[in-house]
Design a protein around this nucleic acid. Structure first.
Lengths: 200, 200
DNA sequence: TCACGCATGTAAATTGTTACATGATTGG
DNA sequence: CCAATCATGTAACAATTTACATGCGTGA
């Protein structure tokens, strides 16, 4: 169900074709929510039958058309409704931490590899999200630029502030993951030192 | 696929019936991984047909039996194989942060409510996970007690260390969520102060 | 004309959620 | 004997992933 609201969210900034939408889900919005095109096209059509968006045919070259989807008043109100409702927190599901709980089942080198990979993965995320924050705050971000054009100037500050805030939260999480992985590497060394002591 | 490895993981500590397994997924393991019984019973049977576990009928009262599942050598080796392989990191999907990015679509009171709820939710998680860490380190945790009995004393330190470590990672994440929510409440006050200034 | 990007899907499989359904055992 | 817990499922639906499939447009 959240895919639907993710779609409504980006369509509040600008009307998009299915293809453009899918691209957004690889790039900017894709940092917060991911969906493959095979899920996006049918969902947009379903949303059209429910009146949340309206698709308008556009010429594309001499022999083709493409469909651009516009959010409707009904769609905006559905989005607003979702925004004001409390979230239901889904039960936790975290493979990396589950796996870490059973690290005694693999050798120290493999544990090290896992933890290094974990740190690296989240460092990359931090880099990506940080560059998003920069692009948002400088208004260079294409979706932000499109959005600011659509909404009155007195709202610009909050629009930018909330988007930055969302990404900063993700950065905090990723940093916690990196710190955790590093503390795990330290723990590993400690355990190996103890083993050496016990053996020697 | 991870459900399967979660099941193998807890069966390395002790053989369990489907019911007991489901209970573990509500309680201790459920803090790291969740699954409803309707998913667990069929999965255990599927795993049996694949030779990863073996179900043995046990008397239960005068007229009934129950099935207790034992991990097989094949199951252990499958688990070990999974443990040594690098993780595939799933694309990010985070409703709370996605919603936060669009907070301008709802009123400040609703934003405050969301952020307070967020902080409260993760504070509860921290409390739960902290008590898990305590129970693990004191060996009072039933699964840990069962596990330590099954494995030689020289492994006890790492078994306990890794389980604590896993939970500590979750606590770090939850703390990052709480901090983020609180920084959001501060941001909200700032924005409201600015609005008041602009209006007055 | 050829490669790359734009555009739009279908199909199958897997995974997860929600609701319903049933009956035995055990302890008070 | 009654409630709580133990035990085991089915069915329907919803969401997601993966793989396959097709064809036009545009610029070099």
């Amino acid at each position: 169900m959240s895919l639907r609201y993710a779609l409504l969210a980006i369509l509040t900034a600008a009307p998009l074709t299915g293809y453009e939408t899918a691209k957004r889900f690889e790039g900017s919005v894709g940092h917060v929510w991911h969906a493959p095109d095979s899920q996006i096209y049918p969902e947009l059509r379903r949303m059209e039958t429910e009146g949340l968006v309206q698709g308008r045919e556009e010429r594309w070259g001499p022999n083709s058309t493409k469909t651009r989807y516009y959010i409707t008043a009904e769609g905006e109100s559905a989005f607003r409704g979702w925004m004001s409702e409390p979230l239901r927190y889904a039960p936790w599901r975290d493979v990396a931490h589950m796996q870490a709980a059973y690290f005694e089942w693999t050798d120290p080198d493999s544990v090290r590899m896992h933890l290094q990979q974990h740190a690296q993965h989240y460092e990359e995320q931090i880099a990506q999200w940080s560059s998003q924050v920069q692009a948002i705050e400088s208004h260079e971000h294409p979706m932000i630029a499109a959005r600011l054009q659509r909404y009155p100037a007195e709202q610009h500050a909050r629009i930018v502030a909330f988007k930055s805030f969302a990404y900063e939260g993700l950065i905090r999480l990723a940093q916690a993951e990196v710190d955790w992985a590093n503390s795990g590497l330290a723990l590993l060394e400690e355990l190996e030192a103890q083993d050496a002591e016990g053996a020697g």
